[in-house]
Design a protein around this nucleic acid. Structure first.
Lengths: 175, 175
DNA sequence: CTAAGATTTCAGAATTTACTGAAAAAATGA
DNA sequence: TCATTTTTTCAGTAAATTCTGAAATCTTAG
């Protein structure tokens, strides 16, 4: 039977792999998992030791996690070192990740698609008709996603139902 | 004003960057975007030329896209070469991507969490209580996600409403 | 202010990931 | 069957990403 530490290690390593599949670097995800599973806040030294990584790497991972809003710095009275802790509620964690990924990935994509659409619309109707159609659909897809996200954030469950309607219609057509 | 080809290139390059943020390699995402914006199917040579990449790279990207179910091979009568085309409906495309990501990322994570949970439960109650709690929450989070996904696939909108309830409750607590 | 402790930065090293191109394999048609 | 065209594979190379560690900076206590 594995020890507690071995189980924690397995979870942390897996979380790290998941992170790298999601465009988050391995170490950052490992630090997050370590803090998530830790009852008390940890300092940089603790993290270095547990994950066997360099001081600089810990510093960079923490900076990134803080910029995501997933980790907070903690001054413990009488302590000289900084301590770090993470959001412990999984649903809140999920919301934070959704918010950040939207900001970093979806918003720039929507901007790019809007710009492309505007440019495509200045062209003669004979040219690029198919491209125009496809960019429009893509844009609509992302915009619908953002609408649902916003309503969820704002407690308005109306449009998630609209989405559901669309999803079911698509399902029906394609099955 | 940009030409049609310049606009297409911009969309394709951006889609490639997006892909690499999502654990899909840049080339694979670019090939997908190229096919998505193309009215007719393309052959390997077309893709090589448009994206300025090697034959081998095209072959690998197509294999991967086909294994995701996003691209299909097309035999055109009288043609010796294979042609390729992609799913053109954005909603269907979204569903395919969701299905594959679930299979490749979420399912293995759930397995790992279940295994860890089982191991944690064999330990004395005094040891690892916090870890047990957190792994349980994580597992529940992912399992809820899968439930919603399955109901959507199966036309049953019930549990998405349950999720919504939970999400709103969380929102309320944390705001 | 100074010294000790703690954190951050970043150039270079290490590692990982992606790509090329030529050889091998597969497919097609005569 | 064989010759030709197309696709696939994969070893080696290139590129991108991540990590280290020492110097610089910042913080705090005395």
């Amino acid at each position: 039977m594995p020890t507690l530490d071995q189980i924690k290690e397995k979870v942390i390593l897996h979380w790290g792999e998941m992170g790298s599949l999601w465009g988050i670097n391995r170490t950052m995800a490992q630090v997050h998992a370590l803090l998530f599973l830790s009852d008390e806040p940890l300092c940089a030294n603790d993290i270095m030791e547990e994950l066997q990584i360099s001081r600089g790497n810990v510093s960079m991972a923490l900076r990134e996690l803080i910029s995501w809003g997933l980790v907070t710095r903690l001054h413990i009275k009488g302590e000289r070192r900084e301590y770090y802790t993470t959001e412990k509620d999984v649903w809140t964690m999920g919301r934070i990740i959704a918010r950040e990924r939207k900001k970093r990935e979806v918003d720039p994509t929507i901007n790019m698609l809007r710009e492309s659409m505007a440019e495509l619309e200045t062209m003669p109707p004979s040219e690029g008709a198919y491209e125009r159609e496809q960019v429009k659909n893509l844009l609509n897809f992302f915009e619908t996603g953002v609408d649902v996200y916003k309503d969820l954030e704002a407690h308005k469950p109306n449009s998630i139902l609209k989405l559901l309607g669309t999803a079911l219609k698509v399902k029906k057509l394609s099955s």
